[in-house]
Design a protein around this nucleic acid. Structure first.
Lengths: 238, 238
DNA sequence: CGTACAGTTGATAGGTCTCAAGCCGCGTGG
DNA sequence: CCACGCGGCTTGAGACCTATCAACTGTACG
């Protein structure tokens, strides 16, 4: 339940709470990086408009999308603790962010109790989010992962005032797959399948959720898998 | 690299730092629970002797081992932020822990800067750990996962002064599988395979790492999979 | 209008799961 | 002390899901 709403970063209200600390705005063009692995980690960011993905590269050179950051969400909390970034943060569309220098944030946290608590909460939230992601990757099928992912996107977007049931996927099929531990072909197939089953309407990167209840059932594995090819006569009378 | 040393909780030195705050000791017998989901989350624990597993149950009723907590590691950091536990913490052997009430910890953190930083670090560490877990589940094969898991155990045990290359698995094959997103049969098969290949010596829950270099190669997918059946004559001269 | 890239779809291969049978170690009780 | 039974573990055969390889379509952009 509560483990499976997978938004990341702080809540909406957090943005306004720390508003006085914001030092400047940053713009990142589609495809450009906000920071690279190895860069000095000296600021925390909040997405104002746009979308950012953070990717990590493993020792063996494989890449994985760790998180998609939507408007209102926080990036780079780790810079309060570490000196360099481990991830690469890339803009999926032209994006503008608020920048708060991490030393300012740390200095202010000494005096302001609510801010301290907010930081703890944000970290805790991040840990929970990553744990839920691990649980998802550990035991969900491809269909369950994609259903969960779409519902999470829907929820987070609607929390920011966007339409809950019709939205644009800012990321490629490959990005989605990377985030969910799947290949792009599998993502594509399952989106098509969900479209065919009437759960979604998918046209390129436009997605409309047509049957949210059913999608939730799928996300919890309560439903036999959707038909792989066409349904056929399910079982003849012997 | 640094992403794949997967210890959880604070470092060794943390234990002593917060020693004055410790209010009492707790003992949990093998198989018993330290706390259940829904229980009030009002304390943070540090393992003194023994091993604890924390499990989460998803909305669909499936269970997953989130973390194994070895001596020196921290449990229940979330209680600084949340009022109830989401996980179940179970002892894998008779275990004794230090208990620090979370309100005491929070109160002290107001005055003691190093403690504050420690808490942030611990949270950040936890988030990183969970992220690495997600990356592992997202793209590693069963062999890579198990190699990574064994190396992580070895590293964490040796950090606490235990032997690095020969240790006892406190958890069942099923627990390992649950933690790694695999079934117990797969865990068993792969341990056997690694034994047969000379990387390990496995007898029941005793594990000895015989070829750490090779195990590291396997953990990074740099090696063609170990032979599935018996090694046979590796390759005859045609 | 053609190139390039993202996405779709098909056929096949491969890894892990499932189901099933047996083995082993250990605690219990005769 | 040994027989027994149970849970944890091993091993095998087959099915299933997802990856892989490949062809093709559509679409954005020069």
């Amino acid at each position: 339940m509560s483990h499976f709403c997978l938004p990341s970063g702080m809540h909406r209200s957090d943005i306004t709470k720390v508003a006085p600390l914001v030092r400047r705005r940053v713009r990142v063009l589609k495809g450009d990086a906000l920071f690279h692995p190895g860069d000095a980690a000296d600021a925390v960011y909040a997405v104002r408009v746009g979308t950012i993905k953070t990717c990590i590269t493993t020792a063996s050179g494989r890449n994985q999308v760790v998180t998609f950051h939507l408007p209102g969400e926080i990036i780079g909390l780790e810079s309060l603790v570490q000196v360099t970034h481990a991830c690469r943060a890339t803009a999926l569309e032209d994006t503008s962010l608020c920048l708060i220098p991490s030393d300012v944030l740390k200095a202010q946290a000494v005096h302001i109790a609510p801010l301290r608590n907010r930081l703890l909460e944000a970290f805790s939230h991040e840990a929970r989010h990553q744990r839920d992601q691990a649980v998802m990757l550990g035991q969900m099928t491809a269909e369950e992962r994609i259903a969960t992912f779409l519902l999470s996107l829907s929820e987070r977007l609607s929390a920011r005032g966007f339409a809950a049931s019709e939205f644009l996927l800012r990321m490629s099929r490959e990005d989605i797959g990377s985030h969910l531990g799947l290949k792009l072909e599998t993502v594509s197939r399952i989106l098509s399948r969900m479209g065919g089953a009437g759960l979604l309407r998918v046209r390129a990167r436009n997605v409309a959720i047509l049957d949210r209840d059913m999608l939730e059932h799928v996300s919890q594995g309560l439903r036999p898998l959707l038909p792989r090819t066409q349904p056929q006569a399910p079982r003849m009378t012997m």
